[in-house]
Amino acid sequence: MWSIPSYLLAGMIVYGAIGWLLDRWLDTSAFFPIGTVLGLMLAGYLAYRKFSR
C-alpha cells in the first residue's frame, strides 16, 4: 500500500515523457497533458487491481 504513490508517479512520468516526445516531434502541444492524465489513469488502475486483492 505504501508504494501506490510511486506507481502513480511512475505512470505519470512514463506516459508524460511519451507525450512530451510526441509533442516535440510533431510540433503539437496536446499530447503532454493527455499522456500525463492517461498515465495517471493506467497507474491508478494497476495499483487498484494489484493492491485490492
Binding site: S3, S6, Y7, A10, G11, L46
Partner: peptide, 11 residues
C-alpha cells in the same frame, strides 16, 4: 513500463 519504472527507480 509503469511497473518497471516504479520498482526500479521511483521506489
Amino acid at each position: 513500463p509503469i511497473e518497471f519504472l516504479s520498482n526500479m527507480i521511483i521506489a
